[in-house]
């Protein structure tokens, strides 16, 4: 796997954390970093319509051509500024990633929707690092995950690292294990890549445990210990989400790993809220593996 790690930088708060996590992952996995900044035109279009807001519904001779010219000029100016801003953000991010260490960093500036661009590029990426807030959430800090990020999580098939405000090199890692194919994949991902070498792994299962769970749990445990990880195992009871959030807080977990179900619409729908709840407000990150 020689594809680089993709890191989405928007220039808002999580951007610095995204850079730091990307740098951490790149060093752990010995991969390059590709920084992505997108100029999403949806936000711009609203601005444009405000500027030319004529509601008379009246068209004069040659209005179409004039309007086109005007719109082209307005958008040209706006996008030129956004482009320059994007370039600066990319430069700044590049310097931050390169700060310590000899990582290869590439910059990509794209027009269009973030989700669509990432889907088109996903065959070139090995891991995506993304801040939990999208561009549109810059002014309303909340504990939720931006809906654009949710869209990205839903549509990509690659491992995604969703990060919150501050970087903290993951030392304590929790795997939320439900014996599904996806969570087995998550286990294998951690075991086979060097992402979390030398960290403490907590293999957590929640719920009244059925006997059928055992073989896979045993397999997961063996896989992780064989790959040389220090393993804690716990089987907890109670509401899944609540239990996980509490465990995360009490044990000081800084990276939560989950298998994500790629093709179940209900799961997909819940993924966003689950992600936000698990991330909570504190530092730390969530790794979703498909």
């Amino acid at each position: 796997m020689t594809h680089p790690i993709f890191a989405c930088v928007n220039g808002f708060d999580p951007s610095e954390a995204v850079c730091d996590y990307a740098a951490w992952a790149a060093r752990s996995l010995s991969l390059d970093v590709r920084l992505i900044h997108t100029l999403d035109h949806q936000t711009i279009d609203t601005a444009t319509s405000k500027m030319t807001g004529d509601l008379t519904g009246n068209l004069n001779l040659g209005e179409r051509d004039e309007l086109l010219e005007e719109l082209v000029e307005v958008e040209h100016e706006q996008n030129r500024l956004l482009l320059r801003r994007g370039k600066i953000i990319l430069e700044k991010s590049k310097r931050r990633v390169e700060k310590d260490g000899s990582l290869n960093v590439e910059k990509t500036l794209l027009h269009g929707r973030l989700q669509q661009n990432l889907v088109e590029l996903q065959n070139e990426m090995s891991l995506l690092v993304i801040g939990r807030f999208g561009q549109s959430h810059q002014n309303q800090k909340s504990t939720s995950v931006g809906h654009k990020v949710e869209g990205v999580i839903r549509s990509l098939e690659k491992p995604i690292l969703v990060v919150s405000e501050n970087f903290q090199a993951p030392k304590k890692i929790m795997i939320a294990f439900d014996a599904s194919d996806a969570s087995m994949k998550a286990v294998h991902y951690l075991a086979s890549t060097g992402l979390v070498t030398g960290s403490e792994i907590h293999l957590i299962t929640v719920g009244p445990l059925a006997a059928t769970l055992h073989p896979r749990l045993e397999e997961a445990r063996k896989t992780l210990t064989d790959s040389g990880h220090k393993l804690h195992q716990a089987i907890l009871d109670g509401d899944v989400l609540e239990t996980l959030v509490n465990y995360r807080k009490s044990e000081g977990i800084d990276l939560t790993v989950m298998g994500a179900f790629s093709h179940h619409w209900l799961r997909n729908l819940l993924m966003g809220s689950m992600t936000s709840q698990i991330l909570g407000q504190g530092p730390g990150a969530l790794l979703l593996v498909r």
């Binding site: 100029l39 086109l68 719109l71 082209v72 958008e75 040209h76 100016e77 706006q78 996008n79 030129r80 500024l81 956004l82 482009l83 027009h111």
Partner: peptide
């Protein structure tokens, strides 16, 4: 040309 200009390019 128009499309590129709209995207902010010279």
């Amino acid at each position: 040309v128009i499309k590129f200009r709209r995207e902010g390019a010279i």
